[in-house]
Design a protein around this nucleic acid. Structure first.
Lengths: 132, 132
DNA sequence: TTTAAAAATGCAACAATGTTGCAATTAATT
DNA sequence: AATTAATTGCAACATTGTTGCATTTTTAAA
């Protein structure tokens, strides 16, 4: 299996491998603070640049929920250039985890006179684990 | 007509009136930078506190789109404590305006094993004005 | 209308977050 | 192995947001 960095024509550096490994370790979306904690030596500047490049290259996507710092999660293979994921971003009000949840029928929305290119759906409530 | 500040049991200060007037002047959601520009004398600290209180009291709501600073827009009368607006947040890719667009049938989404309390829908594309 | 209590404001100082230029280092290419 | 291209890390800075506290303004009460 080919490295994602080679596929995206990016240099495969130890730092990037470490960040990627952290994303793989988590099943949920994570904020920068978690990545910093997990990194052996965390250089804020390099991390910011790494995140920015991962976003540009479509390795991760950004999730902005109200009143929170950004979260980041790995993109699916199928994710095109416009990050058109067929999932919703779910924030559990108990465990606070942000997860990408696949959904069977992604809603279609039409607005008179508008042209909708992209939809982003966010939900709050109780996640699988906390809703029992 | 009773002042919104009286209704919300808040002091009606000149600063708050000025900020409220700015919100009323715009039909769209606006970032802090626009409010600062419009204010006669803009004290950053007071503005931050004003915005925070407006949010808490349900006078405005926050809109966080990916890769942008927060936007703020007036709440509708019917908006309850949980800011459960029946509208979507639309960002035009040409004019960049963020608007709250009412929608007839707000989609219902169910996820097995999850309990969804609140939905937030964001859309990108061309707005009424730019889509012609 | 004056007074007392409560709330909001503004300054200073700080904390957190994010960016840029540039030299040194590391990775990829030949 | 050598050259080129890209990445890293430091320093310095810019932006964004917060807190304590004294002053001022608003509101409520007499």
């Amino acid at each position: 299996m080919e490295s994602i960095f080679k596929k995206k024509k990016m240099s495969a550096t130890p730092f990037r491998n470490e960040v990627l490994a952290i994303f793989n370790k988590y099943n949920s979306a994570i904020p920068l603070s978690i990545i910093e904690d997990e990194l052996k030596s965390h250089n804020r500047i390099t991390l910011y640049r790494t995140i920015k490049i991962f976003l540009e290259k479509g390795i991760i996507h950004e999730i902005n929920l109200n009143g929170e710092s950004s979260n980041y999660a790995l993109c699916k293979e199928e994710c095109g250039d416009n990050h058109n994921h067929q999932h919703i971003h779910f924030k559990c009000s108990i465990c606070s985890q942000v997860t990408c949840v696949d959904i069977d029928r992604f809603p279609k929305i039409t607005l008179p006179n508008f042209k909708i290119d992209q939809l982003e759906i966010q939900a709050n409530g109780l996640c699988e684990k906390c809703n029992n």
